[in-house]
Design a protein around this nucleic acid. Structure first.
Lengths: 217, 217
DNA sequence: CGCCAATTGTCAATTCGGCGACAATCTGCG
DNA sequence: CGCAGATTGTCGCCGAATTGACAATTGGCG
């Protein structure tokens, strides 16, 4: 079938619910630039990235972009609106040509009817989101930019699995909320310290362990 | 019994689950300064504020405090660790002498056994948290401080119900992550614009509508 | 290969917020 | 009332990040 790469959340689901979801999932492909859903849309179900890359982005002001999350193969998303029925909290846009799985809202409710604990599973998924959000807020406030950058890189390297991140410095700037020039300066500092290696449109994490402990007492 | 003030989340719960929770809740009182639970603690169940004030706070660096949320009468908290079983993501401290309700972990699981949809309810609760977190991240990044302050005030006025906020300017500074002096300057600007009224240890929101739209195109 | 667009690297001028300091004001309490 | 501690109001200096500009480098494509 549609092979879905392993994911910390999805692979811990009991097999019955995992298969129930997959059985009702429909595969599709989307070109770079396509919008899976937009801010304010009513919920249309759960999504998963089977291949390519999807980003959850907001536009705090005209001409400004804030990247909330970068989703690679295996990642599920869209659970928030499915749980509470409210409008989508941000845009989901395809950045690299993607293969997607889609479980419609009605299908999710069918699965939930048969397996009420699915709501607990979705709760666990959103808990992990909430934990990273809290982590972000607690550690980003009033921390020097170098520290924030280091932790963002360490987190991205972990969630993407690999040490080679395909992000532009401009994307990092959007995620952390500073200018590209400042990101460049801080990245250079991390490179001099041997923790990362910079290339064109690509950053290689050399020492994730040390990145995580930048700025500790 | 223990009268619990109305709350947007709790009052939308179906009566059966609401009463099931209340039936297993134990009331207690806590003095200002007491810690309900601490960062890293294993989950011990759900809590509600029946009276007084509880704050969820982190300490991003030694000597620095970040206030994630201010909880007044009616507010439930502690759901994150109850759902995913993970450690507490921050401290919960009593700021004003409080009456608390506590539903132990075992009791929550009993209720969930009888009413599996409780997990959906808890999911909805955490969704509202996640929405404000996303809102914070999207709108706080690279927005002028005056805008962030205005939105924080508008949000606090709504969630607390009243127009009179009992917060010190220093608390606002901790929430937004800037210095007290800067907060003071921005508050003065909002006061000159007639949107708020400042007093000792207290801020009266005069025009929540306009606060919300500060900084729009 | 050779060009073009995208991305990175770097600089100076300027703006914004932090920090220390101190006065003014308010509240609670003896 | 009168005092002490807490909170607010305001100033000036300084460091950090933004902005705008431009050169250098890289990758894709005809």
């Amino acid at each position: 079938m549609t092979d879905l790469p392993p994911d910390p959340w999805f692979s811990t689901l009991p097999a019955t619910r995992r298969e129930a979801l997959l059985a009702r999932a429909r595969a599709s492909t989307a070109a770079a630039g396509a919008r899976v859903y937009g801010l304010g849309d009513p919920p249309d179900g759960l999504w998963a990235v089977a291949g390519g890359e999807v980003r959850l982005v907001s536009y705090p002001a005209v001409g400004m972009e804030s990247v909330a999350m970068i989703l690679g193969p295996g990642a599920w998303f869209g659970e928030l609106s499915v749980i509470d029925g409210g409008p989508r909290p941000h845009d989901a846009v395809v950045v690299k040509p993607a293969r997607l799985l889609h479980v419609g809202l009605a299908a999710v409710e069918q699965v939930a009817q048969a397996h009420p604990l699915l709501y607990r599973d979705l709760g666990v998924l959103i808990c992990s989101r909430q934990r990273s959000a809290l982590n972000f807020m607690a550690h980003s406030i009033a921390q020097p930019i170098g520290v924030r950058l280091a932790r963002t890189l360490a987190g991205a390297a972990r969630s993407s699995g690999g040490a080679e991140l395909h992000v532009r410095q401009e994307d990092l700037a959007a995620m952390i909320g500073v200018s590209r020039q400042t990101i460049n300066k801080e990245l250079k500092a991390l490179e001099r310290a041997g923790m990362v290696q910079l290339a064109y449109g690509r950053i290689v994490v050399r020492d994730a362990q040390r990145l995580r402990t930048v700025g500790e007492a």
